[in-house]
């Protein structure tokens, strides 16, 4: 029973990480309708940002979020404006472009760091909370709390503010939204910026947990894809619950089958969901079947 409970806790904490990483990806997909293959690399940049702030300014990783998150917001706006906006009606070229960014960012960091692994320490990450037999690292708990706050915040923002309603209008019908006086390009730029900022936030919060490497984005992007396909592309709650489902699957598969096979299990779940319920559990029905509808 203790083992079972432990696996559930591990799964939920892992789910928090995956959910947080998926939030930005899902927001970008839901609004801009672009599948950003470089999202994992934005998380990676966030992690290195935390390292850099610690190295240069001596900031604790949790404080460095104040610097890193705005930087990634700006990066996201630049990517959307100069790379993706010209490709708005070119879904195939979007795949090439975002994959090109993935390779570019990853190898730029590799070239700069020469492949040295870094780790970032925070006073907070040394604290371990013990309840009975279960030990939980505080840094993972912070991730879990953050993903809950982000999910609630995103939901509130999209449904209760004028700007959020404008974003949802753009999501539903670009042309009508434009006729209603919404600046669609600006909405896309800001959304992509927020999506990138969320990736940066995830990176900062994960920096004390993982050893930094240029390839680390690859671990997150596949998990994030599994999460969003499972939860439903474009749904905030989909990413939230999808993260926990994938986290629990990974924890159980890792314990009862083999830690090496967890990715294979994801893929089976991924394929099964696509066959049984192609829209995901909370998603926009049929988005992956009809492809991304061209709108202008």
């Amino acid at each position: 029973m203790a083992a079972f409970l432990n696996i559930v806790i591990v799964g939920l904490l892992l789910g928090g990480i995956y959910g947080l990483v998926s939030m930005g990806l899902n927001l970008i997909f839901g609004v801009v309708r672009i599948v950003n293959f470089a999202q994992g690399e934005l998380v990676m940049l966030g992690m290195y940002g935390a390292y850099l702030s610690w190295f240069l300014l001596g900031l604790d990783p949790y404080v460095s979020a104040l610097v890193v998150v705005p930087c990634l917001f700006v990066l996201g706006v630049i990517i959307q404006r100069f790379v993706l906006q010209p490709l708005q009606n070119e879904p195939f070229m979007q795949i090439f472009a975002t994959f090109g960014l993935l390779i570019l960012f990853q190898n730029a960091v590799l070239a700069i760091t020469r492949g040295t692994g870094y780790s970032v320490h925070s006073e907070l990450s040394r604290i371990v909370i013990s309840v009975g037999d279960i030990n939980v690292n505080l840094s993972r708990l912070i991730v879990l709390a953050t993903v809950i706050v982000v999910a609630i915040g995103a939901n509130w923002f999209l449904h209760s503010t004028m700007y959020g309603k404008a974003v949802r209008a753009v999501t539903q019908d670009r042309r009508s939204a434009r006729l209603m006086g919404i600046n669609v390009e600006l909405a896309f730029m800001l959304t992509f910026g927020v999506g990138a900022a969320l990736a940066g936030l995830a990176g900062v919060l994960l920096a004390p947990i993982y050893t930094l490497s240029p390839q680390i984005g690859g671990n997150f992007i596949l998990a994030a894809f599994a999460v969003v396909v499972l939860g439903g592309l474009g749904s905030v709650w989909g990413a939230f619950f999808g993260g926990f489902i994938i986290g629990l699957i990974e924890a159980f598969a890792g314990y009862y089958l083999s830690p090496e096979l967890k990715h294979a299990i994801w893929f089976l779940v991924f394929i099964a969901v696509l066959i049984v319920r192609p829209g995901g559990l909370f998603g926009i029905a049929g988005a992956e079947e009809v492809g991304l509808r061209e709108q202008d």
Binding site: I34, W266, E288
Partner: peptide
Amino acid sequence: PTFRLKGPFFAIATLALNEVAFVLATY
């Protein structure tokens, strides 16, 4: 099963396939 997916979704599924093959080949 994956050919019912279009555009980026097909690309994601095939990317995942490569990752699974890596895991299986290592295992």
